[in-house]
Amino acid sequence: MFSIRRHPVFFVVLFAPALLLVGGLMLFPIVNGIRLSFTNASPLRAETRFVGVENFIYLFEDPRFWEVLGNTVYICGLSTIFCTILGLVVALLLDSGIRFVGFFRAAVFQVWVVPWIVIAILWGWLFNDEWGIVNQFLRSTGIIEGQMAWMFEPKLAPWVVIFAYSWRAVPFVMVIALAALQGIPKEVNEAAEIDGAGYLNRLRHITLPLLQNILLVAALLEAVRFLQEVTIPLVLTQGGPIGATNVLSLFTYKAAFTEWDFGLASAAGTVWLLFVIVFAGVYNRFLLRKSA
Protein backbone atom coordinates (compact mmCIF):
# COMPACT_ATOMS: atom_id res chain seq x y z
CA MET A 1 0.00 0.00 0.00
CA PHE A 2 1.19 3.50 -0.84
CA SER A 3 0.54 6.45 1.39
CA ILE A 4 -0.34 9.75 -0.22
CA ARG A 5 2.22 11.59 1.86
CA ARG A 6 5.11 9.55 0.49
CA HIS A 7 3.98 9.51 -3.15
CA PRO A 8 1.90 12.66 -3.69
CA VAL A 9 2.93 13.14 -7.32
CA PHE A 10 2.15 9.56 -8.28
CA PHE A 11 -1.25 9.89 -6.58
CA VAL A 12 -2.11 12.98 -8.59
CA VAL A 13 -0.83 11.46 -11.84
CA LEU A 14 -2.99 8.36 -11.38
CA PHE A 15 -6.21 10.17 -10.49
CA ALA A 16 -6.05 13.40 -12.49
CA PRO A 17 -7.14 12.05 -15.92
CA ALA A 18 -10.15 10.18 -14.57
CA LEU A 19 -11.23 13.04 -12.32
CA LEU A 20 -10.97 15.42 -15.25
CA LEU A 21 -12.96 13.10 -17.53
CA VAL A 22 -15.55 12.02 -15.00
CA GLY A 23 -15.75 15.45 -13.44
CA GLY A 24 -16.21 17.24 -16.75
CA LEU A 25 -18.32 14.67 -18.56
CA MET A 26 -20.41 13.14 -15.76
CA LEU A 27 -20.38 15.13 -12.53
CA PHE A 28 -20.71 18.58 -14.10
CA PRO A 29 -23.46 17.51 -16.53
CA ILE A 30 -25.51 15.82 -13.82
CA VAL A 31 -25.30 18.78 -11.43
CA ASN A 32 -25.86 21.26 -14.23
CA GLY A 33 -28.73 19.13 -15.54
CA ILE A 34 -30.50 19.25 -12.20
CA ARG A 35 -29.96 23.03 -12.13
CA LEU A 36 -31.39 23.38 -15.65
CA SER A 37 -34.55 21.54 -14.60
CA PHE A 38 -35.52 24.69 -12.66
CA THR A 39 -35.08 26.92 -15.71
CA ASN A 40 -36.63 27.39 -19.11
CA ALA A 41 -33.28 26.78 -20.86
CA SER A 42 -33.38 26.15 -24.58
CA PRO A 43 -30.90 26.70 -27.39
CA LEU A 44 -33.77 28.42 -29.22
CA ARG A 45 -34.13 31.06 -26.47
CA ALA A 46 -31.66 33.89 -26.00
CA GLU A 47 -32.21 34.24 -22.27
CA THR A 48 -32.55 31.55 -19.66
CA ARG A 49 -34.84 32.31 -16.76
CA PHE A 50 -35.31 30.59 -13.40
CA VAL A 51 -38.84 29.15 -13.32
CA GLY A 52 -38.88 27.23 -10.04
CA VAL A 53 -40.69 23.92 -10.15
CA GLU A 54 -42.81 24.88 -13.16
CA ASN A 55 -41.30 22.17 -15.36
CA PHE A 56 -42.09 19.50 -12.79
CA ILE A 57 -45.65 20.74 -12.37
CA TYR A 58 -46.09 20.74 -16.13
CA LEU A 59 -44.80 17.16 -16.35
CA PHE A 60 -46.95 15.76 -13.58
CA GLU A 61 -50.08 17.51 -14.83
CA ASP A 62 -49.53 16.00 -18.27
CA PRO A 63 -51.33 12.62 -18.55
CA ARG A 64 -48.90 11.69 -21.33
CA PHE A 65 -45.98 11.84 -18.89
CA TRP A 66 -47.77 9.47 -16.51
CA GLU A 67 -48.31 7.18 -19.46
CA VAL A 68 -44.58 7.36 -20.22
CA LEU A 69 -43.76 6.45 -16.61
CA GLY A 70 -46.23 3.57 -16.77
CA ASN A 71 -44.76 2.27 -20.05
CA THR A 72 -41.26 2.50 -18.60
CA VAL A 73 -42.08 0.53 -15.48
CA TYR A 74 -44.08 -2.02 -17.49
CA ILE A 75 -41.47 -2.60 -20.19
CA CYS A 76 -38.33 -2.43 -18.04
CA GLY A 77 -39.89 -4.27 -15.10
CA LEU A 78 -41.21 -7.22 -17.10
CA SER A 79 -37.99 -7.43 -19.13
CA THR A 80 -35.93 -7.55 -15.95
CA ILE A 81 -38.09 -10.30 -14.46
CA PHE A 82 -38.05 -12.38 -17.64
CA CYS A 83 -34.33 -12.13 -18.31
CA THR A 84 -33.47 -12.95 -14.71
CA ILE A 85 -35.67 -16.04 -14.58
CA LEU A 86 -34.63 -17.28 -18.01
CA GLY A 87 -30.96 -16.58 -17.37
CA LEU A 88 -31.18 -18.51 -14.12
CA VAL A 89 -32.92 -21.46 -15.79
CA VAL A 90 -30.29 -21.68 -18.52
CA ALA A 91 -27.51 -21.43 -15.92
CA LEU A 92 -29.07 -24.18 -13.77
CA LEU A 93 -29.38 -26.44 -16.80
CA LEU A 94 -25.79 -25.80 -17.82
CA ASP A 95 -24.56 -26.49 -14.28
CA SER A 96 -26.37 -29.84 -14.00
CA GLY A 97 -23.30 -31.86 -14.88
CA ILE A 98 -23.77 -31.96 -18.66
CA ARG A 99 -20.82 -31.75 -21.03
CA PHE A 100 -19.98 -29.05 -23.60
CA VAL A 101 -20.88 -26.34 -21.07
CA GLY A 102 -18.33 -23.98 -22.63
CA PHE A 103 -19.85 -24.47 -26.06
CA PHE A 104 -23.44 -23.87 -24.94
CA ARG A 105 -22.39 -20.89 -22.86
CA ALA A 106 -20.58 -19.31 -25.81
CA ALA A 107 -23.55 -19.98 -28.10
CA VAL A 108 -25.89 -18.12 -25.77
CA PHE A 109 -23.43 -15.44 -24.72
CA GLN A 110 -22.83 -14.19 -28.25
CA VAL A 111 -26.35 -12.77 -28.15
CA TRP A 112 -25.02 -10.27 -25.62
CA VAL A 113 -22.82 -8.54 -28.21
CA VAL A 114 -25.44 -8.28 -30.98
CA PRO A 115 -25.73 -4.51 -31.52
CA TRP A 116 -29.05 -2.92 -30.56
CA ILE A 117 -29.43 -1.36 -33.99
CA VAL A 118 -29.21 -4.86 -35.47
CA ILE A 119 -31.88 -6.07 -33.04
CA ALA A 120 -34.09 -3.15 -34.05
CA ILE A 121 -33.84 -4.10 -37.74
CA LEU A 122 -34.11 -7.82 -37.05
CA TRP A 123 -37.11 -7.47 -34.75
CA GLY A 124 -38.89 -5.50 -37.46
CA TRP A 125 -38.50 -8.53 -39.69
CA LEU A 126 -39.29 -11.22 -37.09
CA PHE A 127 -42.47 -9.43 -36.01
CA ASN A 128 -43.52 -8.27 -39.48
CA ASP A 129 -47.29 -8.72 -39.51
CA GLU A 130 -47.52 -10.44 -42.88
CA TRP A 131 -44.22 -12.24 -43.47
CA GLY A 132 -42.63 -12.30 -40.02
CA ILE A 133 -41.58 -15.68 -38.74
CA VAL A 134 -43.34 -15.12 -35.41
CA ASN A 135 -46.73 -14.70 -37.05
CA GLN A 136 -46.00 -17.54 -39.47
CA PHE A 137 -45.28 -19.78 -36.50
CA LEU A 138 -48.37 -18.68 -34.59
CA ARG A 139 -50.49 -19.23 -37.70
CA SER A 140 -49.07 -22.68 -38.40
CA THR A 141 -49.81 -23.80 -34.85
CA GLY A 142 -53.32 -22.41 -35.14
CA ILE A 143 -52.91 -20.00 -32.22
CA ILE A 144 -53.92 -17.10 -34.43
CA GLU A 145 -55.59 -16.69 -37.77
CA GLY A 146 -54.54 -14.00 -40.18
CA GLN A 147 -52.23 -11.35 -38.80
CA MET A 148 -51.09 -10.11 -35.43
CA ALA A 149 -50.24 -6.46 -36.00
CA TRP A 150 -47.36 -6.40 -33.50
CA MET A 151 -46.22 -2.90 -34.38
CA PHE A 152 -49.65 -1.32 -34.73
CA GLU A 153 -51.51 -2.52 -31.65
CA PRO A 154 -50.84 -0.53 -28.47
CA LYS A 155 -51.30 -3.74 -26.48
CA LEU A 156 -48.79 -5.73 -28.54
CA ALA A 157 -46.01 -3.26 -29.33
CA PRO A 158 -44.61 -3.12 -25.77
CA TRP A 159 -44.21 -6.89 -25.96
CA VAL A 160 -42.04 -6.59 -29.05
CA VAL A 161 -39.75 -4.37 -26.98
CA ILE A 162 -39.95 -6.67 -23.94
CA PHE A 163 -39.00 -9.71 -26.05
CA ALA A 164 -36.02 -7.82 -27.45
CA TYR A 165 -34.82 -6.62 -24.03
CA SER A 166 -35.25 -9.99 -22.33
CA TRP A 167 -33.56 -11.85 -25.17
CA ARG A 168 -30.56 -9.55 -25.19
CA ALA A 169 -30.08 -9.69 -21.42
CA VAL A 170 -30.51 -13.43 -20.76
CA PRO A 171 -26.82 -14.14 -21.53
CA PHE A 172 -25.59 -11.64 -18.96
CA VAL A 173 -27.68 -13.12 -16.14
CA MET A 174 -26.77 -16.63 -17.31
CA VAL A 175 -23.03 -15.93 -17.22
CA ILE A 176 -23.17 -14.33 -13.77
CA ALA A 177 -25.44 -17.05 -12.35
CA LEU A 178 -23.35 -19.83 -13.87
CA ALA A 179 -20.15 -18.43 -12.39
CA ALA A 180 -21.85 -18.19 -9.01
CA LEU A 181 -23.19 -21.75 -9.30
CA GLN A 182 -19.75 -23.07 -10.16
CA GLY A 183 -18.46 -21.31 -7.06
CA ILE A 184 -20.72 -23.31 -4.73
CA PRO A 185 -18.63 -26.13 -3.19
CA LYS A 186 -19.75 -29.54 -4.46
CA GLU A 187 -19.72 -30.93 -0.92
CA VAL A 188 -22.69 -28.82 0.10
CA ASN A 189 -25.00 -30.38 -2.44
CA GLU A 190 -23.53 -33.86 -2.01
CA ALA A 191 -24.12 -33.78 1.73
CA ALA A 192 -27.73 -32.77 1.18
CA GLU A 193 -28.17 -35.50 -1.42
CA ILE A 194 -26.91 -38.14 1.01
CA ASP A 195 -29.42 -36.87 3.52
CA GLY A 196 -32.08 -37.59 0.93
CA ALA A 197 -32.86 -34.10 -0.33
CA GLY A 198 -34.24 -34.21 -3.89
CA TYR A 199 -33.23 -31.80 -6.63
CA LEU A 200 -36.07 -29.36 -6.04
CA ASN A 201 -35.45 -29.36 -2.30
CA ARG A 202 -31.77 -28.67 -2.78
CA LEU A 203 -32.63 -25.94 -5.27
CA ARG A 204 -35.01 -24.29 -2.86
CA HIS A 205 -33.06 -24.59 0.35
CA ILE A 206 -29.44 -24.47 -0.80
CA THR A 207 -28.83 -23.21 -4.32
CA LEU A 208 -31.32 -20.36 -4.59
CA PRO A 209 -30.54 -18.83 -1.18
CA LEU A 210 -26.84 -18.88 -2.09
CA LEU A 211 -27.57 -17.23 -5.45
CA GLN A 212 -30.15 -14.77 -4.19
CA ASN A 213 -27.92 -11.76 -3.68
CA ILE A 214 -25.95 -12.07 -6.88
CA LEU A 215 -29.14 -12.57 -8.91
CA LEU A 216 -30.75 -9.54 -7.33
CA VAL A 217 -27.67 -7.44 -8.11
CA ALA A 218 -27.62 -8.69 -11.71
CA ALA A 219 -31.34 -7.87 -12.01
CA LEU A 220 -30.76 -4.35 -10.67
CA LEU A 221 -27.91 -3.79 -13.14
CA GLU A 222 -30.14 -4.95 -15.98
CA ALA A 223 -33.05 -2.78 -14.83
CA VAL A 224 -30.80 0.29 -14.80
CA ARG A 225 -29.49 -0.64 -18.24
CA PHE A 226 -33.03 -1.11 -19.62
CA LEU A 227 -33.94 2.36 -18.35
CA GLN A 228 -31.04 3.80 -20.38
CA GLU A 229 -31.92 1.79 -23.48
CA VAL A 230 -33.44 3.78 -26.29
CA THR A 231 -32.53 2.21 -29.66
CA ILE A 232 -35.53 -0.11 -30.03
CA PRO A 233 -38.22 2.43 -29.08
CA LEU A 234 -36.52 5.14 -31.12
CA VAL A 235 -35.74 3.18 -34.29
CA LEU A 236 -38.25 0.33 -34.39
CA THR A 237 -41.50 1.50 -32.81
CA GLN A 238 -40.75 5.24 -32.65
CA GLY A 239 -42.54 5.40 -29.33
CA GLY A 240 -45.77 4.28 -30.94
CA PRO A 241 -48.35 3.12 -31.65
CA ILE A 242 -50.22 5.92 -29.84
CA GLY A 243 -47.32 6.31 -27.42
CA ALA A 244 -47.46 2.70 -26.23
CA THR A 245 -43.68 2.27 -26.31
CA ASN A 246 -42.77 5.83 -25.39
CA VAL A 247 -40.43 5.24 -22.48
CA LEU A 248 -38.68 7.73 -20.21
CA SER A 249 -35.36 7.58 -22.08
CA LEU A 250 -37.05 8.33 -25.41
CA PHE A 251 -39.28 11.01 -23.91
CA THR A 252 -36.33 12.80 -22.28
CA TYR A 253 -34.19 12.59 -25.40
CA LYS A 254 -36.95 13.91 -27.64
CA ALA A 255 -37.84 16.73 -25.27
CA ALA A 256 -34.20 17.81 -25.35
CA PHE A 257 -33.12 17.26 -28.93
CA THR A 258 -36.32 17.27 -31.00
CA GLU A 259 -38.22 19.99 -29.16
CA TRP A 260 -35.03 21.62 -27.82
CA ASP A 261 -36.76 22.20 -24.48
CA PHE A 262 -33.71 21.68 -22.27
CA GLY A 263 -35.54 22.78 -19.13
CA LEU A 264 -38.38 20.30 -19.47
CA ALA A 265 -36.04 17.52 -20.57
CA SER A 266 -33.81 18.18 -17.57
CA ALA A 267 -36.84 17.95 -15.31
CA ALA A 268 -37.77 14.58 -16.85
CA GLY A 269 -34.17 13.44 -16.46
CA THR A 270 -34.15 14.57 -12.85
CA VAL A 271 -37.35 12.64 -12.14
CA TRP A 272 -35.68 9.62 -13.72
CA LEU A 273 -32.55 10.06 -11.58
CA LEU A 274 -34.60 10.43 -8.39
CA PHE A 275 -36.62 7.37 -9.29
CA VAL A 276 -33.46 5.29 -9.72
CA ILE A 277 -31.94 6.54 -6.46
CA VAL A 278 -35.10 5.86 -4.45
CA PHE A 279 -35.65 2.50 -6.12
CA ALA A 280 -32.04 1.37 -5.58
CA GLY A 281 -32.19 2.53 -1.97
CA VAL A 282 -35.40 0.63 -1.21
CA TYR A 283 -34.12 -2.39 -3.13
CA ASN A 284 -30.87 -2.38 -1.21
CA ARG A 285 -32.63 -1.96 2.11
CA PHE A 286 -35.31 -4.62 1.75
CA LEU A 287 -34.12 -7.20 -0.77
CA LEU A 288 -30.38 -7.56 -0.57
CA ARG A 289 -29.22 -9.68 2.29
CA LYS A 290 -26.20 -8.12 3.94
CA SER A 291 -23.17 -10.35 3.88
CA ALA A 292 -21.55 -10.79 7.26
Binding site: V22, P29, I30, S249, A256, G269, W272, A280
Partner: peptide
Protein backbone atom coordinates in the same frame (compact mmCIF):
# COMPACT_ATOMS: atom_id res chain seq x y z
CA UNK B 1 -19.75 7.17 -7.13
CA UNK B 2 -18.32 5.53 -10.24
CA UNK B 3 -20.76 2.63 -10.08
CA UNK B 4 -23.66 4.93 -9.23
CA UNK B 5 -22.84 7.10 -12.24
CA UNK B 6 -23.90 4.18 -14.46
CA UNK B 7 -27.45 5.08 -13.50
CA UNK B 8 -27.10 8.76 -14.50
CA UNK B 9 -29.71 9.30 -17.22
CA UNK B 10 -27.72 9.63 -20.45
CA UNK B 11 -30.12 12.13 -22.10
CA UNK B 12 -29.81 14.34 -19.02
CA UNK B 13 -26.01 14.23 -19.30
CA UNK B 14 -26.26 14.95 -23.01
CA UNK B 15 -27.97 18.30 -22.46
CA UNK B 16 -24.91 19.75 -20.70
CA UNK B 17 -22.48 17.80 -22.88
CA UNK B 18 -24.08 19.30 -25.96
CA UNK B 19 -23.57 22.85 -24.71
CA UNK B 20 -20.04 21.96 -23.58
Amino acid sequence: FFMGSLAFPVPLLMISLYSL
